[in-house]
Design a protein around this nucleic acid. Structure first.
Lengths: 241, 241
DNA sequence: CGAGGATTTGAGCTGGATCAAAATAGGTGG
DNA sequence: CCACCTATTTTGATCCAGCTCAAATCCTCG
C-alpha cells in the first residue's frame, strides 16, 4: 500500500529488507477524501499520521478575516502530518486540494519504530526536515522574488517532487496539477487575478502551458532560469543517513 | 555548558537523569563568533551541529542579485543546524547576527543518541519540527499579513522564545535585540526603509520601543492583537512525547 | 444543454519599493 | 573626554508590482 513511501525513502538512502517490510505495512485503512475536505483539522490532536496515496493536499492557515495561506503542498508518498507525532497538537489544517486517497499510520506504530529502528527513524526525521527546507525555499520566494519567479519556481518544485515518485510524464515534460488558480494564489501569497496574469506571461514566454489539469513545460531550462531553481534543497539523492 | 538546551527540552517533556547527563555533555568546544561572520556555509557538509550559547543567529539565502532573505532566527539553546545531521548538505547559510558564543556536537554523537536514546531522539526531532512550524508561521506572515502585523508578530515570537530560556526581563517586558533594522527587513521580506517607517508606527501606537539594543513592550495585549499572535505554534508546554 | 465554478479582462488604486540625502549614534584612537 | 569615522536610522519624493472591485467569458460535468 505504501510502495510510494518505500520509493521515496529509497531516494534518500538504501533500505534493508526488514525496513522495507515495516514500511510496506505502515499505512492502514485507505480511504477516499473529496476535494476541499479537511483531512486534519487545525487544533486537533491526531492519534495517527496520514500518508497520501493519490491526489494533492495543502497545509494551510486561515486568518480571522478570511485571508488564507497555504504553507505547503504534499504529493503522493508524503505524510501530510508526520510532524504531529512529536508536536501532538496541529497548529494548522490540512485540506485535500483534489480528490485524494489517503491511509493512516497510528502514532503507536511510529513510536515503536523510534524504539527499535534507528535508521528508519532517521529517514522519517529526514522527511520532516526536508519539509522545513521546502518551507524555507517558499519563504525566500514570497519574501524576495517576483510573482513570475515564484510561480515558475513552484512549477519546477512540483515537477521535481512528482518525478521522485514517478508521477510525471518525462517524455512530454508534463504532470497533472488538479488545483485552481486560487489555490496557487494562496500558495504564492498572491491574488487569483494576479496569478492568472502571471500565468499568461509564462505562457507568452513559452515557458509553460496549463490546460485542463495538465501542466506542460516546453522549456525546462528557461523555466528553471526564470525561477532560479536549484533542486539541492529537495535533497533527492542517496547517501548514508 | 548546554544547560539552556536542557531547559528548553524540559519545556517540552520531563527528562530523566541519564538524559540530562547526556545533554549536559553534548556540546563541546565553545568558541566566540563575531557579528556578521558565517557560522555554517551554504553548500557545506558539516560533521557537527552548532548550538548557540549566547547571541542571535540567522539562517539565510542570498540570491544572485544580492537580495537576501533570512528564513529563521535562532536564540540561545537552539541548534542552528540540527537538520544538517540528516540532511548532510546545507542548503542555506547561517550567520551570526550579533557577537555569539557557540558550541558543537559531532554528528557521531547524535547518531549514537538515535541508536540508544529513543526518547531523546524524539525530543531532538521535535525541535526541528518546531523550526518548521515557525517557518510556516513566517510564511503566513509574509504571504498574507501587512508589514505592521508581521513586525509585531516577530517581536511577540522573540519575546516568547527568549522567555522560554530565561532571557527576557519579565518585569519590564523587555529583551535585548542586537540586530539592525536591515536584518529585520530581511526577516520580514521588506526594505530597511519600510521597516523603519513601520517601527515608527508601532511606537506611535504605544506598542513598542526599541532604543539601543533593548526592545520594550509597554502593551503586550495590544501588540499580540495587532500581530494576531497565537503562541500554540511554539508548542511550549510539557507533555509526554 | 444548463448552471455554477473557474478563468479572464478592465480600470483604478495603494502598500511598500526605490533612490537619494540628511541626521544620529556608537566605537575608536588620541 | 573629545573628535572623528562609519554604520545605522530617519526623512523626502516618486514610482510600480500587485491589489481591489466588477464584469464578462469559458469550461465541466451532471
Amino acid at each position: 500500500m505504501s510502495e510510494l513511501l518505500v520509493r521515496k525513502l529509497r531516494g534518500f538512502d538504501a533500505l534493508d529488507e526488514a525496513e522495507v517490510r515495516i514500511l510496506r505495512d505502515i499505512a492502514r485503512q485507505a480511504r477516499s477524501v473529496e476535494a476541499r475536505a479537511d483531512i486534519v483539522e487545525q487544533g486537533s490532536r491526531p492519534g495517527h499520521s496520514t500518508l497520501i496515496l493519490e491526489g494533492l493536499t495543502g497545509r494551510y492557515r486561515i486568518l480571522a478575516d478570511g485571508r488564507r495561506q497555504i504553507t505547503s503542498i504534499d504529493v503522493p508518498g508524503d505524510f501530510v502530518d508526520l510532524h504531529s507525532f512529536t508536536l501532538k497538537t496541529m497548529d494548522h489544517g490540512v485540506a485535500a486540494l483534489s480528490p485524494c486517497r489517503v491511509a493512516i499510520t497510528p502514532h503507536g506504530e511510529l513510536q515503536r519504530i523510534t524504539e527499535t529502528q534507528p535508521h528508519l527513524t532517521r529517514l522519517l526525521w529526514l522527511t520532516t526536515v526536508i519539509d522545513a527546507a521546502i518551507h524555507r525555499e517558499w519563504l525566500v520566494g514570497i519574501g524576495r522574488m517576483s510573482a513570475l519567479e515564484r510561480f515558475a519556481h513552484l512549477i519546477c518544485e512540483l515537477y521535481s517532487r512528482l518525478g521522485a515518485v514517478g508521477l510525471v510524464d518525462a517524455e512530454a515534460r508534463s504532470f497533472t496539477l488538479p488545483v485552481t488558480q486560487s489555490d496557487v494564489a494562496d500558495m504564492l501569497g498572491l491574488t487569483n487575478v494576479h496569478v492568472n496574469r502571471t500565468l499568461q506571461e509564462l505562457r507568452r514566454r513559452g515557458l509553460l502551458t496549463w490546460r485542463g489539469r495538465t501542466v506542460t513545460i516546453p522549456d525546462w531550462a528557461g523555466l528553471t532560469d526564470v525561477a532560479r531553481f536549484d533542486p539541492i534543497y529537495l535533497h533527492q539523492h542517496q547517501e548514508p543517513r
